[in-house]
């Protein structure tokens, strides 16, 4: 077990599901209910992952958890990085918001909500950000139609 996983386990035992290193990048998979505790543990822990670089998501329609969240954390002292991942669930994808740990997650999570439809519990301002407010559907889902359908905004021409 790596230092990072040990740090998380020390604060919330049982949170880490798996960990592996691929192409030189450490990925730690955590239970989605524990994502906030895991983030806080890493931010305040000795690894000093003070910067939340990025929050994003990828859609895997065939997987049971379907929406795989990826949180990229960085240490500004050493430059070391870790990726936390968690599956948000297929039917009603929802995960706790990390805005309480990093206020900067606000827009990143709004983008994921807008593009994937993953809801963030406890988010202070969960509405669309890149698409218009009355947009229907979530464009970055793999089953979003990409051709053949009527082009949106045709009524505006």
């Amino acid at each position: 077990m790596s230092d990072v996983s040990a740090q998380i386990e020390a604060v919330t035992p049982g949170a880490v599901v798996a960990e592996f290193t691929h192409v030189g990048e450490l990925t730690v998979e955590v239970r989605k209910e524990r994502i906030v505790e895991a983030c806080r543990a890493l931010r305040d822990g000795p690894g000093q992952f003070a910067l939340l670089s990025d929050v994003t998501c990828a859609d895997f329609p065939d997987e049971p958890g379907r929406f795989r969240m990826a949180y990229h954390l960085a240490s500004i002292q050493t430059g070391s990085r870790v990726r936390l991942r968690a599956w948000a669930g297929a039917l009603e994808p929802e995960i706790e918001s990390v805005t309480s740990v990093w206020p900067g997650a606000n827009w990143m999570e709004r983008e994921v909500y807008d593009q994937f439809g993953v809801r963030f519990a406890g988010h202070p301002d969960l509405c669309r950000i890149l698409n218009p407010l009355d947009w229907s559907g979530h464009p970055l889902r793999r089953d979003y139609p990409i051709g053949g359908e009527e082009v949106q905004f045709t009524d505006a021409v």
Binding site: S53, D54, A58, D59, R81
Partner: peptide, 28 residues
């Protein structure tokens, strides 16, 4: 697999996160 490459752009950390499913097109 997945990879994240951060660089220093004129405005700060510019990172690219790609996910591949092994095919000729990016998964994400």
């Amino acid at each position: 697999g997945e990879a994240y490459a951060p660089i220093e752009s004129p405005r700060g950390e510019m990172g690219c996160y790609v996910v591949s499913d092994g095919g000729p097109k990016p998964h994400r």
